[in-house]
Design a protein around this nucleic acid. Structure first.
Length: 428
DNA sequence: TCTGGGGTCCTAGGACCC
DNA sequence: TCTGGGGTCCTAGGACCC
């Protein structure tokens, strides 16, 4: 058996995908957006992250910079909204609850997608189940969805993609004779798992369609694209080799928060305050999952589009032994790491904090030289304090308690994703 | 003086996803 | 002039061990 590749299994998987999810969410709270060309923008309103069908019809691309669509907006042809990610998350939770009612097992893949494990369900029932999911999502949440069923996840992806293009809500690809004609029309770059880089390489070898890709000898795929490429290739042949469990994990491996600034930042105090704020946020998210981390990283990035100035993208990491979960520990270490990588005179466009080596908080392997009693006591106290702070901060409108290091943010009151959902940021 | 080869662990970086 | 944010997985190469 090839390592990393499962034995061939007869499988049946579904993929539910919410159509134009962020735009659909906005339409649930403002029905006037129905039928209009609408886009949702990223933080800082920098680029397009979701488009209605009408906006797609106008040729607006995913990731397109906002300045390129300004004329459409000012002419009233297009409505652009800042993202309201709290709303999207709320609807996402309810939509995923609906999916769970219809499948023996599901794996939440993203905010707007889930895989359904349909093993053991007679394939003659699939269409009715798919239609019932579509109806429930629309009746209960006003979210249109598309569902594809196939023997592998990659083919289920093909199915939903084709369904969205053709305006069909439920697509079944059960036999090779059903998916092969679709692969002939599918650009190789649209295959799940084939990104821009690999697509470019394939074009160089005159491989343009998914069908051409699938017709290549397996051995060549393995040699040129490694195990990931081979998995994709096998999946296109109807062989399921990406496990659901890979996509579903109780605890994230890492938790991060990063932001792009509206302008280049050279000010150390400002960067330090942002890093402290990111620490508070990622710490809270980690604790809400019952996790603690053994490593923290801080990074800075200059503007990658300003190639003439050279790209500078330093990262610094530090270990925690034993792991920690409280904001003061995260922040003091992060600030030290920032000092290591910060150089004055360079304008930074982006910064972030990443927590990794995350383990469940109840299950700490004590470190070899740790004085266990004292350490446990210290940790318990820190944890109690952070729980108290988190519960006071539960209402995102009122950040009641903050660490002093978070308080020195005093300029650039831009839309950075912290305030957009609740109106202008409160002056500190 | 000669100076192997295989295993494991770790890390950085590349590639992908939505 | 202006270009998101949050993740995962794989691999190559170095360090280290016997």
């Amino acid at each position: 058996m090839i390592p990393g590749i499962q034995d061939k299994k007869e499988r049946l998987v579904g993929l539910v995908d919410c159509n134009n999810f962020f735009v659909s969410c906005e339409r649930t709270v403002d029905p006037r957006l129905e039928g209009r060309a609408v886009v949702v923008l990223s933080n800082n309103d920098g680029c397009v992250v979701a488009r209605s069908n009408e906006a797609k019809g106008m040729g607006i691309r995913m990731g397109q910079p906002a300045f390129e669509i300004r004329d459409h907006i000012s002419a009233g042809r297009l409505i652009a909204l800042s993202g309201n990610h709290l709303l999207y998350r709320e609807i996402s939770i309810r939509i995923h609850d609906i999916f769970r009612r219809f499948a023996p097992a599901t794996a939440d893949y993203s905010v707007d997608e889930a895989f359904l494990d349909m093993e053991g369900i007679p394939s003659t029932n699939l269409r009715a189940i798919g239609e019932a999911i579509v109806k429930a999502c629309y009746d209960e949440e006003h979210i249109p969805v598309t569902i594809g069923f196939a023997p592998s996840k990659t083919l289920a992806k093909v199915a939903t993609e084709v369904g969205k293009k053709q305006g069909e809500r439920v697509i079944l690809l059960m036999e090779e004779s059903q998916w092969l004609p679709l692969l002939e029309k599918l650009p190789v770059s649209d295959i799940w798992g084939i990104g821009r880089r690999i697509a470019k390489r394939l074009y160089g070898e005159s491989i343009y369609t998914a069908a051409q890709f699938a017709a290549l000898p397996a051995i060549r795929i393995r040699k040129e694209l490694g195990i990931t490429g081979e998995r994709t290739w096998r999946e296109l042949h109807g062989e399921s080799c990406i496990e659901l469990s890979h996509l579903e994990r109780p605890l994230q491996d890492s938790i991060s928060e990063t932001r792009t600034f509206p302008e280049d930042i050279d000010d150390y105090d400002y960067l330090r305050a942002r890093i402290a704020l990111y620490c508070a946020h990622v710490g809270k998210r980690m604790r809400s999952q019952g996790g603690q981390c053994g490593e923290i990283s801080v990074f800075l990035r200059t503007n990658r589009f300003h190639t003439e100035r050279g790209y500078y993208a330093p990262t610094a990491s530090g270990r925690f032994d034993p792991p920690v979960s409280d904001t003061p520990s995260l922040t003091s270490r992060a600030v030290k790491l920032l000092e290591q990588i910060y150089h004055p005179g360079i304008g930074y466009k982006r910064a972030g904090v990443i927590l990794s080596r995350i383990t469940p908080i109840c299950n700490v392997a004590p470190s070899l030289f740790e004085e266990i009693e004292d350490e446990n006591q210290r940790r318990r106290k820190a944890l109690q304090l952070m729980k108290a702070i988190d519960s006071l901060n539960r209402n995102p409108r009122k950040q009641t308690i903050q660490l002093a290091s978070q308080l020195s943010i005093r300029h650039l009151g831009h839309n950075d994703g912290y305030s957009s959902s609740f109106g202008p940021a409160k002056e500190i």
